[in-house]
Design a protein around this nucleic acid. Structure first.
Lengths: 208, 208
DNA sequence: ACCTGAACACCGTTCAAGT
DNA sequence: ACCTGAACACCGTTCAAGT
């Protein structure tokens, strides 16, 4: 389902395309191993191109991240839509949050980039972040309407929670990050209902 | 109660002492304005000393942070001890967490430094972090014993929560950070008891 | 169209030489 | 005992010159 490195948007000269792909490949493994703040100069070196070539293809680090993660992030948003069909609004939301956190932990430092990008309209990652946020909003709205989370919970709350938990995971251990996510998700629950098991109206997951 | 810049540990030559204090003063305002990752070279420049002088007094950025924050952090730990007398174990814990978060937000990027230092025994900030962690542990233990938080909640959980909330506050808004802390704290509560109002045995806050 | 590599303005850290 | 400032090895980003 994954095509390895994503294709550039438009037709390119053969050598340009080769450089483009080499840069993405090296960036992917460098980011995976050393985090999203890894030296761009070193990435260019590893790809065997001049530093100027890297900037030609990716004017900023965020552009590089977008090329690497954009598709994945849109897939994450799509997963959110699917989870709207989960019989339990809260469980659907929680499952999605865990998936989102897994995506965020592919590169160390990614949570910070995603937090910044969602509020910065000039960021190349902004559109993808907004899509993720929108998916979260739908899940939150449904859980809110079902009385399974506090009435004041927002999509930015969920977004911040996921990224903060991912961040904490980077700083200490992945397990610690997951614990934080668990606590945070539990804290979103409506304090009125202890455990929103609810009557559940026999059928599916309506509520357009 | 605060003496401005903390005094150096031992007697120093007059010029050394002056440089030491100038460096601390400049570092404090630079960190406050631009975060704890601000250029050390620029701090030395602002203090009117050579960069080597800065490294002479503070071999690492963490040493500088320790000089600036050590006392404050020990005071935070002391506040934790005091809050052990709070009639409500959970409220005491929560109040302390909010105080801790306020301390963490004095410099942008401080949460990351504190998360790193608590696990790095070679860090000059390590002792201070451990003191804070120990205070948290006592508060957590009391709340746990009182059945007001889950039985599996640990001091590192609380520590990570505070720093992660502070981090989130830096990335978006202080309000968002506080919301996250609220959710997180609520998530620490024992899921068995909805609201642990408890009979409360008339008197104070025993439980040695 | 695209690539190159030097140029510029920064870093953190170390260390010989001074006083 | 302490300070200085150059030295070293890095960054990110830009841009003239090439092909």
């Amino acid at each position: 389902m994954e095509t390895g490195t994503p294709a550039p948007r438009r037709r390119m000269r053969a050598d340009a395309r080769r450089n483009y792909e080499r840069l993405l490949t090296e960036a992917a493994s460098a980011f995976a191993e050393h985090g999203a703040d890894f030296s761009l100069e070193e990435i260019a070196r590893r790809a065997g191109v001049a530093n100027g070539t890297l900037y030609g293809h990716f004017p900023t680090r965020r552009a590089l991240l977008e090329a690497l993660l954009g598709d994945r992030m849109r897939a994450l948003a799509a997963t959110g839509e699917e989870l709207l069909a989960d019989p339990s609004p809260f469980d659907g939301l929680a499952a999605w949050a865990r998936t989102a956190m897994a995506h965020t932990t592919v590169y160390r430092g990614l949570g910070a980039a995603l937090m910044e990008a969602v509020e910065d309209e000039t960021s190349e990652l902004h559109t993808a972040c907004k899509a993720v946020l929108a998916a979260g909003e739908e899940l939150v709205a449904r859980a809110r309407a079902a009385g399974e989370v506090r009435t004041d919970v927002t999509a930015p709350d969920l977004y911040a929670l996921v990224n903060a938990a991912a961040w904490a995971g980077e700083q200490s251990s992945a397990a610690q990050g997951e614990r934080l996510l668990t606590f945070g998700l539990d804290g979103l629950r409506s304090s009125a209902t202890t455990r929103p098991v609810a009557p559940r109206p026999a059928g599916g997951a309506g509520l357009a």
